[in-house]
Computed example of a mutant assay.
Amino acid sequence: MNPPLTDVEVRILGALLEKEVATPDYYPLSLNALLAACNQTTSREPIMRLDEDAVIPATVALRRRGLLRQIQRAGSRVTKFEHRLDEDLRLVRPELAVLGVLMLRGPQTPGELYARTERLHPFADLAALEAMLESLITREPEPLVARLPRRPGQKEVRYAHLLSGEPTQAESSGTTEEPAIPTRRAGVGDDRVAVLEQTVEALRAEVAAVRAELDAFRAQFG
């Protein structure tokens, strides 16, 4: 895409793509709803802290490029926003699902994408998703997805969108060992599981602190 989209523009379009399917009753999104979607702490990587001063100019730029539509219905003072990626880039729902998750969560393996696209479009199996990735890589007149070089210690390749241009060195290299392909069942609630794990750890720490205080109290009167 020329010129490449900024990180804020990518986040806006990705959030609109997600909410169109995840919360259709509230789509198109108002500015406040769009801000909340962009700043979510779940299903986002990296987490952003955007405000109106960052989002409004980005929506204007996207509208000028034909990638976003601004709507104000008769009798309403609320301006709402919807993406036009399906129209402008002529993408179908499975393609939008893959592209949207890559836009919101960065480079990922096929297994991660298979688990995380279920809410937007449930692929029949991993092979179906990999076929969709291949079609986005070979798409004419220009590809929308790239296959990244395998990182040291990695068992699987990762894929990244090209709406912001070629992936940076930080995205295409690293030393972290890649986890095994997650199953659909294991990956669907990965964010919720992470939050629960953090909560459990916090509760364990609180219990340990209470036990330490109780032991100290008993020592005083034992």
Rank of each mutant, 00 (worst) to 15 (best):
I181P: 04
R139H: 04
L214H: 03
K80Q: 12
V8I: 15
E197Q: 14
T175K: 06
D7P: 04
V10F: 07
V8Q: 08
V8W: 04
R84S: 14
G222L: 04
V78M: 05
F217W: 12
V8L: 08
E18K: 10
G14A: 13
Q72V: 08
E171C: 00
I137M: 14
A202S: 02
G66E: 14
V195S: 01
L35R: 15
L136F: 07
E142V: 14
L129S: 00
A54W: 02
A15M: 03
R158M: 10
I47F: 05
H83Q: 15
R77Q: 14
P152V: 14
I181V: 08
Q40I: 01
G66I: 10
T79D: 01
L16S: 04
E87R: 14
L91F: 11
V10Q: 13
E177W: 03
P141A: 02
P4W: 11
A128Y: 00
S30C: 02
Q108R: 15
P143C: 03
V78P: 01
R150C: 08
G187P: 02
L104Y: 07
R11H: 06
P149M: 09
K155G: 15
L85S: 12
R218Y: 06
A36Y: 08
S30N: 04
C38P: 09
P110A: 15
S76T: 07
E178C: 13
L120I: 00
I12C: 05
E206G: 00
R119M: 13
E142M: 12
A74V: 14
L34H: 07
D25K: 15
V207I: 13
P3A: 12
T117D: 00
P28A: 03
D7T: 12
Q154F: 10
Q169E: 14
H121P: 04
L50E: 01
V55S: 03
R69D: 14
P143D: 07
E112W: 07
L62Y: 06
L16R: 04
S76Y: 02
L34E: 07
L214N: 05
I12Q: 04
L13M: 05
R184F: 03
T79H: 08
V188N: 00
R11Q: 11
R218N: 12
D25V: 11
Q198N: 05
P4D: 06
L120F: 01
A124K: 11
N39W: 12
E156N: 10
E178L: 14
E213F: 02
P57Y: 06
Y26A: 15
N39D: 10
T79E: 11
I71H: 11
E134C: 03
L129V: 00
E18L: 08
G189A: 13
P3E: 12
P122C: 03
L31K: 13
A22K: 07
G106L: 12
D88V: 15
R119T: 13
S76H: 04
F81W: 05
L50I: 02
Q220R: 15
A54Y: 02
C38W: 04
P141I: 03
E213A: 10
R44K: 13
R147A: 09
L96R: 07
P149I: 09
A160W: 06
A54M: 09
G189D: 14
P122Q: 06
L29I: 05
D51M: 10
V210D: 09
S173Y: 04
G100P: 10
E9L: 02
V193N: 05
R151D: 07
R49L: 13
P141T: 01
